[in-house]
């Protein structure tokens, strides 16, 4: 038991962090909500009256349609990226958990795509997938199909972004899953072998269930990270062609800093916040359920 004295000390020690959170986290959230309820635009951002419009900005954004497009785009993009990254990352993690020559070094090499700044990756992919880039060259010269205008046709543009982001995200998935794998005791596999389990059974019955905590946090982290995609899209497609790859983040940015509709930009950012908040709650709920069932 903590003594009364210690309890007070404890509270005092928490104060700096609390103030930090209030100021740097709480204040922006509250202020952003406030901003989204006003009508602040180019005419009144620094002087003049900023009328209160309630949910008017949200209503207008949903009616105008691009916000809905951007939500759908972001969800498609996020889910596709997560699924691909997870499967490939898991495959890599399993591969590199075996000890073979160069395993360590190869794993290091795979990390490169995670280490590159997203801006560089975006430019690289923009270059590779451009009309006369290496991808189209390969397709036509290897007679795999006809020339595709990757970045300027709606669906291929989205596919390009998903490929690029999957490439970026694989190492992150791999590392987290590798860490998860190392926590599984080796002797479980031994006893499973003695019981006559084959490799596939070991994977489905042992590896996956034991990786569950790692997988949960990986999926949630991955979801949040992927959902917030920004530089990649801004540079590779700028949300185009005609909003076909417009994400929530790039749309909020466009509203605020390209069209100077500051309040609508804040509203779009808040919608994004709410979606991620729900994902967060869902994660907490899953963790809690897991703990209850395991205890």
């Amino acid at each position: 038991m903590l003594s009364r004295q210690n309890k007070i000390t404890g509270y005092v020690l928490v104060l700096p962090a609390l103030f930090y959170m209030l100021f740097f986290v709480g204040y922006p959230i509250i202020d952003n909500i406030r901003l989204s309820l006003l009508d602040v635009n180019v005419m009144n951002v620094s002087h003049g009256e900023q009328p209160f419009v309630g949910l008017g900005n949200y209503k207008e954004l949903f009616e105008e349609g691009v916000l809905v497009t951007s939500i759908v785009n972001t969800l498609i993009y996020t889910v596709a990226c997560i699924v691909l990254q997870f499967i490939i990352g898991l495959a890599f993690a399993l591969l590199f958990s075996k000890t073979f020559r160069f395993a360590q070094r190869l794993r290091g090499l795979v990390m490169i795509s995670w280490l590159l700044p997203a801006t560089i990756t975006a430019m690289m992919y923009k270059f590779m997938f451009s009309g006369d880039g290496v991808v189209n060259d390969s397709i036509t010269h290897l007679h795999l199909g006809s020339h595709i205008d990757w970045l300027v046709t709606p669906v291929p543009a989205m596919i390009t972004l998903i490929i690029a982001n999957t490439w970026i995200g694989i190492p992150f998935n791999m590392i987290l899953l590798t860490t998860g794998l190392t926590t599984i005791p080796k002797d479980i596999y031994e006893s499973a072998s003695i019981d006559g389990a084959n490799a596939l059974q070991k994977f489905w019955r042992l590896t996956l269930p034991l990786l569950k905590p790692a997988i949960y946090s990986l999926l949630v982290l991955g979801f949040i990270y992927t959902f917030k995609v920004f530089e990649l899209v801004l540079i590779a497609t700028h949300g185009g062609p005609v909003n076909a790859t417009q994400m929530m983040s790039t749309y909020a940015y466009k509203l605020s800093f390209e069209l100077f509709k500051f309040s609508q930009g804040a509203a779009a950012a808040n919608v994004m916040f709410v979606i991620l908040f729900i994902v967060g709650i869902l994660y907490l709920w899953m963790v809690r359920r897991e703990e209850v069932s395991s205890s």
Partner: peptide, 16 residues
Amino acid sequence: MAALVTGLVGCGSSDK
């Protein structure tokens, strides 16, 4: 979770 989600708000509404 709180850190993640709030971190993102900072990002989403980069103006703030």
